[in-house]
């Protein structure tokens, strides 16, 4: 697609992504990744020390689908629910081969518990590989959420 439209396509994808999480539409969340897509959520502490362990490591389509089952079938009804609001700011969007772009964005996620208060859940940055098709639709080939928040204030149920 026309290179000048790429940032708009990338931003539209990020908006779909955070909107699907905040609405808890996990089919829509899954739809943000292409068939080879992966999602990793890792602490900056591990990342900076070259420790590969993640908080969520969904490095295949199968694992992305399993993540949806964990939330909707396995854990449902046990955890203390919370509502999220994601805020994302794109910092970089760099071409990386045919139709592929490396995108770096900051994020903050607020959460509101059933008790009613709202606080920051995590802050960090996304390092993403986005594929933008000829028709102008964008999908994640790889999405990595790197959490500055080393000790999360509660256990994470939903992807970031």
């Amino acid at each position: 697609m026309n290179g000048s439209n790429v940032p708009a396509a990338v931003d539209a994808l990020q908006s779909r992504y955070i909107s699907s999480l905040d609405r808890r539409d996990f089919d829509a969340w899954l739809g943000c990744f292409d068939e080879q897509g992966s999602y990793i959520c890792i602490s900056r502490e591990n990342e900076e020390q070259s420790l590969p362990l993640a908080i969520m490591m969904d490095d295949s389509r199968e694992r992305l689908k399993d993540r949806v089952s964990y939330i909707t079938q396995v854990w449902a009804g046990t955890f203390e629910d919370y509502w999220t609001r994601h805020f994302v700011q794109r910092l970089e969007c760099t071409p990386n081969g045919a139709d592929s772009y490396l995108v770096v964005s900051n994020f903050t996620v607020f959460y509101t518990s059933a008790r009613g208060g709202s606080e920051i859940l995590v802050a960090g940055c996304y390092a993403d590989q986005v594929i933008v098709g000829a028709d102008g639709t964008a999908k994640f080939r790889a999405k990595k959420a790197v959490l500055d928040t080393t000790t999360t204030p509660r256990y994470l149920v939903y992807p970031v």
Partner: peptide, 17 residues
Amino acid sequence: SSNLLGPSGFVSLEDGA
């Protein structure tokens, strides 16, 4: 290790709750 037994693990998240 990343997905099974931690605070967001498949068979362990409910413990924290």
